[in-house]
Design a protein around this nucleic acid. Structure first.
Length: 511
RNA sequence: GGGCCGUUAGCUCAGUCGGCAGAGCAUCUGCCUUUUAAGCAGAGGGUCGCUGGUUCGAGUCCAGCACGGCUCACCA
């Protein structure tokens, strides 16, 4: 049979040839002595003469990333995803089966190699193979070795390929895992209990956002995917756990952008007998520690900025508006940030978007987002938010229009949101009712009434502070990623066109 | 959802004024026992995203559609 020209068909041909010669194309295991990363850690420092004096016999396995045949010998590179090791095969050092296998190898195959370590003339640490074992077949050719895979759509749809050929992508997700591990360790060491609460909820509460709707068949019940972790975690504070956290996925039925994916990962933690000031200090400590552990420094380059986590800033929302007010527009005077008429005029003057039904709180928030948010590059806490946009927060003792709440901004992105939790059930009911009025005015992100939550508060919830941290955005900052899709393994994309089954059929068709 | 941009070989990309579909890597054949973007000689490989239109002739011009990127809107 002639070798076919189509690349996939060529590889299927080689797979059949492997079978024909008695190789198991998909064996069950390989008994390795070192991962490639471990191997390098152990032997990178040994010289050629040292390796000759004390011969080291190893079995390693990984994906063939480079093949350099050279007559009756040849080199190949095996990768474990992180590191590579060179393997040298020569006719007079291996058995016939291993030699045949080498002739049939393709880039991308998974291979096991046994042999002794040595250094080549160019001083490269190398396994001199005595035996090669085929472990799995690559049927779809990998992207090119030099330019790699750059097509963004393919990188996201086939993240597995992205991870095989782009080590820096792998590094991003290793960092993400490290961030999450540090968060858990930080909270665990402070007496927090990690808990899991429902994803499927009859009332999607705890945030101002539109939910996804789903359906339970047996109960014939429409349910929502959660938009926040908040309300169930506070029920647990009522239940007597003084410190709880959940680090998990939430879902918001909103647009997709470089900073938004419909499902994203949120950390929420709640601490009884504390207020939002305690969490400001805690957040500064936690994030500084994560930054240092994950990046090795307290200064981080993000795009063309240097973020300095030695110098955290704190402004009230009103101060931030005044401080970052554009020079070209007349600045607000003393009481301007209080009257709805003046606020509307100011919002118009800076092109902030608002509805005519918006009260002073919403107007203030809209002005803040337009005027100040883009300037909040360095780690900055903004505190004292309008009650109108904070239906679950406790008001300040001397000002019912303002709540004890802060948001953390880094690189112009909102990364965290925290407040002293409102625990007065009567006031909570009134706030929900106000939200229902806003919903009636057309705001479909306004909060729904949650009677069970009010009932829980009625049993008595200790004074509590709670916070949410957007893990994806924090990861963006620490991996210098411009798009949230770069830090989510499988970001949401429209389904692939119907060309996929054909491509697969080509691969699957057995012979 | 709006605006702008993109889609050509497995991958990365050229393709002039509308006139035979190109390169590098990868693949295949031959040679090559310390190479490493190995080398030398030769060869094969295309639904130019899809559907229409204009034209003697369309990868190229026009329209619609699909998918993606950036951006605006929405949000965290």
């Amino acid at each position: 049979m002639e070798a076919p020209t189509n690349l996939v068909a060529q590889r299927r041909f080689k797979l059949a040839e492997l079978k024909r010669r008695g190789f198991d194309p998909y064996p069950h295991r390989f008994d390795f002595t070192h991962s490639i990363t471990d191997l390098r850690a152990s032997f990178d420092r040994l010289t050629g003469p040292e390796l000759e004096t004390r011969p080291e016999r190893v079995r390693v396995c990984g994906r063939v990333m480079s093949l350099r045949p050279q007559g009756k010998a040849g080199f190949l590179d095996l990768s474990d995803g992180e590191q590579r090791i060179q393997v040298y095969m020569r006719r007079d050092k291996v058995d016939d089966a291993s030699y045949d296998l080498f002739q049939l190898l393709d880039l991308g195959d998974i291979l096991g190699a046994e042999g002794v370590l040595f250094r080549t003339r160019t001083n490269e640490l190398t396994v001199l193979a005595s035996r090669l074992q085929h472990l799995s077949k690559n049927l779809i050719p990998l992207p090119e070795k030099w330019h790699g895979l750059t097509d963004v759509e393919t990188r996201f749809r086939q993240r597995y390929v992205d991870l095989i050929v782009n080590p820096e992508v792998r590094a991003v997700f290793a960092k993400r895992s490290r961030i999450i591990r540090e968060i858990r360790s930080f909270l665990d060491s402070r007496g927090y209990l990690e808990v899991e609460t429902p994803v499927l909820q009859a009332i999607a509460g705890g945030a101002l956002a539109r939910p996804f709707i789903t359906h339970h068949n047996a109960l014939d019940l429409d349910l929502y995917l959660r938009i926040a972790l908040e309300l169930y975690l506070k029920r647990l504070i009522v239940g007597g756990f003084p410190r709880v956290y959940e680090l998990s996925r939430i879902f918001r039925n909103e647009g997709i952008s470089t900073q938004h994916n419909p499902e994203f990962t949120m950390l929420e933690f709640y601490q009884a007998y504390s207020d939002f000031r305690d969490l400001m200090d805690l957040t500064e400590e936690m994030i500084t520690q994560i930054v240092e552990v994950v990046t090795g420094s307290r200064t981080v380059t993000y795009q063309d900025q240097v973020l300095d986590f030695n110098r955290w800033q704190r402004y009230s929302l009103r101060d931030a508006i005044v401080r970052f007010w554009p020079e070209s527009v007349p600045a607000p005077a003393g009481d301007d940030l209080k009257s709805p008429e003046r606020l509307r005029a100011l919002a118009r003057s800076v092109n902030a978007k608002f509805e005519l039904t918006d009260g002073p709180g919403k107007l203030l928030a809209a002005i803040f987002e337009e005027v100040a948010e883009p300037h909040l590059i360095q780690p900055t806490f903004i505190y004292d938010f309008p009650t109108e946009v904070s239906p679950l927060s406790k008001t300040k003792p001397d000002d019912p229009e303002t709540v004890e709440r802060f948001e953390l901004y880094i690189a112009g992105m909102e990364v965290a949101n925290a407040y002293s939790e409102l625990n007065d059930p009567a006031e909570q009911r009134a706030r929900f009712e106000d939200q229902l009025r806003q919903r009636g005015l057309g705001d479909d992100t306004a909060h729904a009434m949650d009677e069970d939550y009010i009932r829980a508060l009625s049993y008595g919830m200790p004074p509590t502070a709670g916070e949410g941290i957007g893990i994806d955005r924090l990861t963006m900052v620490l991996t210098n990623s411009r798009s949230i899709r770069e830090v989510i393994l499988f970001p949401l994309l429209r389904p692939e066109a119907d060309t996929l089954p054909q491509a697969l059929g080509e691969v699957d068709a057995d012979k």
